[in-house]
């Protein structure tokens, strides 16, 4: 059912005056677990869980989490990406596993001129961190597929930082000359319409260009400035302390 919904999201509602004049726009994304993650959970991770009650918690988490909506705002040089937080069953306190794993509170800022890629994380370690990451180094391929009415090209890179090796697969369209994408991923010669990082799948559902609304993007300022490597090191150390 989830995938049928996803396919239906591909039938974009697009502002037909899609000549990019001001390079202003918004892209809405639907966020789900990646099929790779679900398969990995069912074939490996689930078997390692030691009791049925725990399995039920994770089955519910992986298979019944509600989709999360997200929005990317951009202008010529900058982008800002954030999730729309969804509450489960009206509870203010218990999140779906999907919201937990994506870090639904995180916000992402990118600047093409300064080559800045920043993540604001205030929820994980009890204080705000402003995490800087290098721009992604993509391997472009000639493989194509159609998403909505756009021909998209496949790009990949392997991210070895953060304690897990992950293959990131993006589908971008050169027809929309915007170098941004969801979840802090950017730097491709076209807008990323779909991205799979082997855990999370981002799928564009709506694109708006040149909206009359002025899009102001502010660079996040608060938070302790750290690199992605330093932030991962802090988390690793916290784990060691907890143990």
């Amino acid at each position: 059912m989830k995938y049928i919904l996803l396919i239906s999201f591909y039938l974009f509602t697009i502002d037909t005056n899609s000549q990019i004049i001001n390079n202003n726009g918004k892209v809405h994304y639907t966020v789900t677990f990646s099929p790779t993650k679900i398969k990995g959970y069912l074939t490996n991770q689930r078997k390692a869980l030691k009791n049925k009650k725990t399995m039920k918690i994770f089955d519910d988490g992986y298979l019944n989490s509600k989709n999360v909506e997200a929005i990317l705002k951009f202008n010529k040089n900058e982008s800002f990406f954030k999730y729309k937080e969804q509450l489960r069953n009206g509870s203010k306190h218990q999140k779906d596993l999907l919201s937990v794993i994506i870090g639904v509170e995180e916000k992402f800022y990118s600047n093409l001129s300064t080559k800045e890629s920043l993540t604001l994380n205030c929820h994980l370690l009890g204080e705000c961190f402003l995490i800087s990451s290098p721009f992604n180094t993509w391997k472009l391929t000639q493989e194509t597929k159609v998403i909505g009415k756009y021909i998209c090209y496949k790009a990949e890179y392997v991210n070895k930082t953060g304690g897990a090796k992950r293959k990131i697969t993006a589908w971008y369209t050169p027809e929309i000359a915007v170098n941004f994408g969801p979840g802090g991923y950017n730097g491709l010669p076209g807008l990323i319409l779909q991205l799979d990082d082997e855990t999370i799948l981002f799928s564009a559902s709506q694109i708006q260009f040149n909206s009359k609304e002025k899009i102001t993007i502010e660079r996040p300022k608060k938070g302790k400035k750290v690199s992605e490597i330093e932030f991962n090191k802090i988390i690793k150390e916290v784990f060691e302390k907890i143990k």
Binding site: G40, N44, Q45, A48, L49, V100, I101, G103, N121, L124, L125, G162, G163, A164, R166, T199, F231, N232, I235, K236, V238, F239
Partner: peptide, 11 residues
């Protein structure tokens, strides 16, 4: 057994 990043494991 969760094969994912430190950040996601911590979450």
């Amino acid at each position: 057994p969760m094969n994912d990043t430190y950040k996601r494991r911590m979450s």
